[in-house]
Amino acid sequence: MAIITGKAFVYGDNVNTDVIFPGKYTYSVTDPKEIAAHTMEDEDPAFVKEMKPGDILVAGKNFGCGSSREQAAFCFKYLGLGAIVAESYSRIYYRNCINAGLLAVEVKGLAGKVKRGDTVTIDTDKGTVKFPDGSQATFAPLPPEIEGIMKAGGLDEFIAEKLKKMNG
């Protein structure tokens, strides 16, 4: 990981898991490609058509509130989203991002900094997000206990390695 540059898709506060990935699909849609196709369906149907791998989602407070359904985080991973930048996250959602191996950073003072289509750059080594006006914000690195999950590419891979070690 190092530098991620992408086009921004900007949303407000309290974007919930039902609008990211509707509950009606949670038991009927299981194929990653199909899950990806429903991403942001009830918030912004244009998102899946316009976004390209590496793009960045920018949101306000409490992103991903609501259900624990992890498809709402995995759908972005399946689409190849570069990262999510939000003022704050719902806690289960934040965990689901880590478990998906999807970069999610918490940055304060985002409001009005970015509009749809702007270019945003994240430097994961320095812990910075650069905005089009030249300003930048910082974010805290992941605690070492959790960084391992991201480095492994997600919780599946992390636990798989752990089980291998446990079983010698």
Partner: peptide
Amino acid sequence: GRSEAAGIWAT
């Protein structure tokens, strides 16, 4: 999350 439940089942 679901993956975490699987992780607890496993470990």
